[in-house]
């Protein structure tokens, strides 16, 4: 029983220590690790469809059929072309 308790204690103790010190290390040495939040560039998502508790069939089909071929821009500039301000 003591052995089991010891093993569990090591996992919990060192695991918690790693979590604490990873946060401290990030705060200390990983400086400026953030990008601008989405709120800076948008007002939020405008939802067309929203469903909770999807069953298996719904899960498999939910992402299909939302984007249609006509949604794509047929006049998009070629991928290998350098970007310029004319957008052409």
């Amino acid at each position: 029983m003591g052995v089991l308790a010891f093993l569990l204690a090591i996992g919990l103790g060192f695991g918690l220590a790693c979590l604490i010190f990873a946060s401290v290390l990030a705060k200390s040495n990983d400086i400026g690790n953030s990008v601008a939040s989405s709120g800076r560039y948008s007002v939020g998502i405008s939802y067309d469809r929203s469903r909770d508790k999807l069953n298996r069939n719904e899960r498999e089909t939910f992402t299909t059929g939302y984007i249609h071929p006509e949604d794509y821009n047929p006049n998009e500039p070629a991928s290998e072309k350098l970007v310029d301000q004319t957008g052409k």
């Binding site: 998502i45 405008s46 469809r49 929203s50 939302y66």
Partner: peptide
């Protein structure tokens, strides 16, 4: 499982 579909401008 949750499903969400929409636009983000």
């Amino acid at each position: 499982y949750y499903g969400r579909a929409g636009h983000l401008n």
